[in-house]
Amino acid sequence: MILKSKDLLGLKDITKEEIQGILDTAKTMKLIIQSGTKKTPHLQGKTVITLFYENSTRTRTSFELAAKYMSGNSVNISVSTSSVAKGETLIDTGRTLDVMGTDVIIIRHSMAGAPDLLAKHTNAAVINAGDGLNEHPTQALLDMFTVMEAKGDLNGLKVAIVGDILHSRVARSNIWGMTKMGAKVVVAGPPTLLPSHIKDLGVEAYTDIEKAVEDADVVMALRIQKERLEKGLFPSVSEYARFFGINENIVKKAKKDALIMHPGPVNRGVEITSALVDGDSSLIDTQVTNGVAIRMALLYLMTRKDG
């Protein structure tokens, strides 16, 4: 029994051992992806539904491929095509999917806690694929997997996460997960984009990104959204890029072999320069590949009878 709960709602409520179990399983799954056949029977007869209330390309495709590689049935529901637009409640939608015999529901929602609500009212296993500002646990798992693959271990590493921490569920899940695995997590960004009491989550916080990146083993840039600019949280894209963007000079402060990561999609030249995105230290493509492995691991662990 690797996972204690029927659902994966976030990394804040699961243990180091559970995280390790998922990462170990993903290693095997990655071998399957790299093999020629890319087909296993692990999910045969199982139905996986992606229920997305927000747009997504990579996360959704990643889950769908993960299900298909393991011979599962996958169905996609998005806001525009489902009865959600007609005003059906989340609980009712969940019940409907449940009684159709769904084994796993993967939900993305603009509101924090929506996966918790769904999980409470369904028998199906629920995987959070991003909820509001709260968590995006599969992204953090794939980030951790990617770092461990490159560095062997997370314990003792310094990970700098730079950008819009306030609105980032990726940052929050990585903070919960990586600190549990023994990494030192440092966050940095403009003060208007750092969450209240962020240090109480066991991280260091800086507004000077050079300081944050100093001696880091991993530098992770986060996507900056245009709507933050519209809300007046920073003055302009060019000013943001100049003071809070990751560039070659900033990266020089990090360790020589520091890894460059980004959850995507990237605003090239804003939160990170193109040269870094495409450079030798960049693991951005590897992150995407590993995303499929992590999601295969989760679907497998959450649908097998002994957890």
Partner: peptide, 11 residues
Amino acid sequence: EGYMSTVLGLP
């Protein structure tokens, strides 16, 4: 707004 809103990811 405070520690709990940060933990729960609520605005």
